[in-house]
């Protein structure tokens, strides 16, 4: 019995070594493109398969959280194995771009999306928009009872009833924008006020929406499209999104985006991939595919029915390209008020 286990272990170790050698050799064959994707496999895989079908270019995709993928590219530095970085968040693209690890994109690519959804330094371009909303539990609250502005959330009536994901990049981007538009002091007071109101912290947007659905909290500060993702699994979840009023920092529209990694040897193919993400087909998929509900950024593609048009969401008009620079002080503020520990 023990000998058998020993033999099995040795055999498997050998197998492992063989598999390693295999992966090492198969890497260098055909012209393949390596994508580091911070976007979830279940959401984007069909899109990637369509790209391969259209162009014949094979994709090797490494999936992880956007920040892990960004950290990996930063640690790899000039030796990065990635050709393209596809990120959930503009801020993370900004970080990588600031380290000089993303290439400048052609003007024709950049011009396809509105100016605030692309990097001023031209090193990344937005692929889809997501609005900040207040998700609310429909069995506990009516639409009219949901606060019209995030400033109301520090009122005592919401004590213990609010959930948010403090370490999530889109929440942090929202705080960064709030800090720019409303000032550091007001932002700090608001964050401290929420904390005094027993706000609950969750790991990510999905967990917040699910907590709202369970009634663990009644309001959640999240991006709008997570609700639509979750409805695929749980169609009856008692949650709706409340979009915020004009000029409210809570009405920020953030974006996911893509950039080409500087060390790539497949620039042409990488460029085709970026352009594919901005093609009408991909934009429709991102906007109205199964479980998808993001805002398309290219003109002529309509968002999922039932969503307010992007033009009607009058949040702060901030160029998301600033986030690479404005995120660090915001995160420091979050550290300071004890949101990130």
């Amino acid at each position: 019995m023990k000998k058998l286990i020993m033999l099995l272990l040795v055999a498997l170790a050998a197998l492992g070594a063989a598999a390693a050698a295999q992966t090492a050799t198969s890497r260098s064959e055909a012209t393949t493109l390596t994508i580091y994707s911070g976007r979830e496999e279940r959401l984007v895989k069909p899109l990637f398969e369509q790209f391969t079908k259209q162009t014949g270019i094979e994709l090797q995709v490494r999936y992880g959280s956007s920040s892990e993928m960004a950290a990996t590219i930063l640690e790899e530095g000039r030796n990065s194995r990635a050709d393209v970085f596809f990120s959930q968040e503009a801020g993370l693209l900004g970080f990588v771009a600031r380290e000089g690890l993303l290439k400048v994109l052609p003007a024709s690519t950049l011009a396809r999306v509105p100016a605030r959804f692309r990097a001023p330094g031209k090193r990344w371009v937005g692929t889809s928009g997501r609005a900040r909303v207040i998700a609310y539990n429909t069995s506990e609250l009516t639409r009219a009872q949901v606060p019209k502005t995030i400033w109301e959330l520090t009122k005592p009536q919401w004590k213990g009833k609010i959930g948010l994901p403090p370490t999530n990049a889109s929440f942090q981007a929202f705080v960064a924008v709030m800090r720019i538009t409303s000032g550091e002091d007001r932002t700090r007071d608001w964050l401290l006020g929420l904390k005094a109101n027993d706000v609950r912290f969750y790991g990510n947007n999905t967990q917040v929406v699910q907590a709202v659905g369970r009634g663990e909290v009644q309001l959640g500060l999240v991006n709008h499209y997570y609700l639509h993702n979750i409805r695929v699994q749980t169609p009856t979840i008692p949650v709706e999104n409340a979009f915020l009023g004009k000029g409210d920092p809570g009405a920020l529209v953030n974006c996911a985006g893509v950039g080409i990694v500087s060390s790539t040897k497949n620039s042409a193919a990488a460029q085709r991939f970026v352009d594919f993400l901005l093609s009408p087909f991909a934009q429709r998929f991102i906007a109205r595919g199964p479980g998808a509900a993001e805002y398309p950024l290219v003109r002529g593609v309509r968002p999922r029915p039932g969503l307010p048009p992007l033009g009607e969401i009058k949040g702060p008009e901030i160029n998301l390209g600033r986030l690479g620079r404005d995120l660090p002080p915001a995160i420091r503020l979050l550290n300071e008020v004890g949101y990130t520990r």
């Binding site: 920040s67 993370l92 370490t167 969750y202 990130t340 520990r341």
Partner: peptide, 19 residues
Amino acid sequence: QYPTLTRAVYLQYESLLDR
């Protein structure tokens, strides 16, 4: 939702503030 050193390390990476 319990704060430990390891969680803090992850959160630092997560928000990419400072490696």
